[in-house]
Amino acid sequence: MKRIICLLFAFCMACKHPAPTPDKVSDESIFNLSATWHTEKGKSIQLKELKGKVLVVVMIYTSCKVACPRLVADMQDIRKNVGNNDKVQYVLVTIDPETDTPAKLKEFAISKEMDGDEWTFLQGNPETVREFANVLSVKYKEISPMDFSHSNIISVFSPRGELLHQQEGLGVNNKETIAAILQAANH
């Protein structure tokens, strides 16, 4: 339903503004968030620098042994099914910025063969992570210094940063998510 509302909203926006200014972002857009993040390449960016691409976002931490490897596998599966498409960016945000430094994230990316240009890993700080999780409705809790409990959600955002689709759970069928990405990317 949420997805329908979002799509509907995107659709209405499209109707109202046949030629929208590309810089203009709506109230719902995650590009309103002005926090700065570090990428695995050591760059500092704001989310709005990713504007113009369909964003597939997940929150993980690299030392996770339970759910995150499966979430990462889901991301890889989605990437494979979407195929090469320079309009889609895959974003992995770490829940554990203390441990997951850009160097660590880069190492992780290489080991998982997720070091192409379409992959971006982000490190924030505890406060920006908390806020970003709130935007995605991701719930998480630090159980011990090395262990987090978190909800497993993959979110898809439009090129203007509006939430289009969320997939919750592990090992669920990625079909709907892939369809949402393709629809947004080919629009």
Binding site: C64, V66, A67, C68, K139, K141, I143, D147, F148, S149, H150, S151, N152, E168, G169, L170, G171
Partner: peptide, 11 residues
């Protein structure tokens, strides 16, 4: 629900 929440068994 371990499928929904990683590490959830401890909470």
């Amino acid at each position: 629900d371990a499928a929904k929440f990683c590490g959830s068994g401890s909470i």
